[in-house]
C-alpha cells in the first residue's frame, strides 16, 4: 500500500475513534489518536496476517498484543477496517452486550483479539510468551508485536518482561512505545515517568529505533529496521514512536486532558470537520 493510501485509512480511523467515543459517552480518545498512524501501518502494510484465517493461537501469522488496553477504540477501528469484523459494529463500543468491551476481551468472540488487556504493564510478558512459543515451534518467519504506552512503562512488570525477552533471545519480539509524553494526571515528566525511555530499553539489552509516529514513511522504515535488527542480533527491539496525544484534532492534541474523556456532540462535529472521511463512516 502507498503512503498516501495508508494516510487516508488513518484519517478514517481517527474519525471512527471520535465517533465511537462520543457515542459511548466515555473512553480514551487521546492515546487512540496518537497511535492511529502506527496501527494503520501495522495492520495494512507491515504485519503478515489474514483476517479470514486468523485464530487466537496465531500460528503461521504475525501477532499483535495491545498492552495499553485503553487504546481499544483505535484497535477496534483498525481491526474492523482491516476486515476482522463488520465496521457497523464499531457503534456498539461500551454498550451492554457488545463484543467491543470497554477494554479488549477474549470472552465475546471478537475476531482479532489475542488477549485481554486493561490492567497495565502486562502485555510485554504475554507477547514474550507468544514469541517464545514461535521460537520453540521453529517458526522463524513470524514476529510478535506489542504496543505499550510511555506512561504505562512506569509499571515494573514491563521491565521484568524486558529482561526476560533479552535473556531468552527473542529477536522475534518487537515492542512499540507510544511516546506521547502524556498520561492521565499530566505529562509523564511531571507524574513519575522521567528519564530517557530509549536509554532504559537499551540498558535492558533491547535494540531501539526511534521515529516520528505521525510520518507514515518514517513509521514503515522503522518497522522494517526493527525486523532486520531483531533477526540479526537475536535480541528484542523497541520502536519508540514520538507522537502527540490527541493528534489530528487541534483542540485535543498535545495535552493529557483528552486521555480519558469523551467529546461532546459539538466537540465531535468540530473534530470531524478536521478529519477527512475517506472510506465512509460506519
Amino acid at each position: 500500500m502507498t503512503k498516501e493510501q495508508l494516510e487516508k485509512i488513518a484519517s478514517q480511523v481517527r474519525r471512527d475513534i471520535i465517533r465511537m467515543v462520543t457515542a459511548a459517552g466515555s473512553g480514551h480518545p487521546g492515546g487512540s489518536m496518537s497511535t492511529a498512524d502506527i496501527l494503520t501501518a501495522l495492520y495494512f502494510e507491515v504485519m503478515d496476517h489474514d483476517p479470514a484465517t486468523w485464530k487466537r493461537d496465531g500460528k503461521g501469522q504475525d501477532q499483535f498484543i495491545l498492552s495499553a488496553g485503553h487504546l481499544a477504540p483505535v484497535y477496534y477501528s483498525v481491526l474492523a477496517r482491516a476486515g476482522y469484523f463488520p465496521v457497523s459494529e464499531l457503534g456498539t463500543l461500551r454498550k451492554l452486550g457488545s463484543r467491543l468491551q470497554g477494554h479488549p476481551s477474549v470472552r465475546r468472540g471478537l475476531p482479532g483479539i489475542t488477549q485481554a488487556s486493561g490492567s497495565l504493564g502486562q502485555g510485554v510478558s504475554v507477547a514474550a510468551g507468544l514469541a517464545l512459543a514461535k521460537k520453540m515451534d521453529g517458526d522463524k518467519k513470524h514476529v510478535v508485536y506489542v504496543l505499550c504506552g510511555d506512561g504505562e512503562s512506569e509499571e515494573g512488570q514491563i521491565w521484568e518482561g524486558a529482561e526476560f525477552a533479552t535473556h531468552h533471545a527473542l529477536g522475534n519480539l518487537i515492542g512499540i512505545t507510544d511516546w506521547n509524553g502524556q498520561q492521565i494526571d499530566g505529562s509523564t515528566e511531571s507524574v513519575c515517568g522521567g528519564g530517557d525511555l530509549q536509554l532504559k530499553w537499551q540498558a535492558f539489552g533491547w535494540n531501539t529505533v526511534t521515529a516520528d509516529g505521525h510520518d507514515m514513511e518514517a513509521i514503515l522504515t522503522a518497522f522494517a529496521k526493527a525486523r532486520e535488527m531483531g533477526k540479526k542480533t537475536n535480541r528484542p527491539t523497541m520502536i519508540l514512536f514520538k507522537t502527540d496525544m490527541g493528534h489530528g484534532v487541534d483542540f485535543m492534541a498535545g495535552t493529557h486532558k483528552w486521555h480519558g474523556k469523551a467529546p461532546s456532540q459539538e466537540q465531535c462535529s468540530e473534530a470531524l470537520a478536521q478529519l477527512e472521511e475517506t472510506l465512509g463512516d460506519y
Binding site: R56, D57, G58, K59, I65, T114, Q115, Q122, G123, V124, S125, V126, A127, A128, G129, L130, A131, L132, A133, K134, D137, Q157, G161, F164
Partner: peptide, 9 residues
Amino acid sequence: GAAAGLAIA
C-alpha cells in the same frame, strides 16, 4: 504473562 502467551500459542 509469559505463561499466558505460551498457553495462547
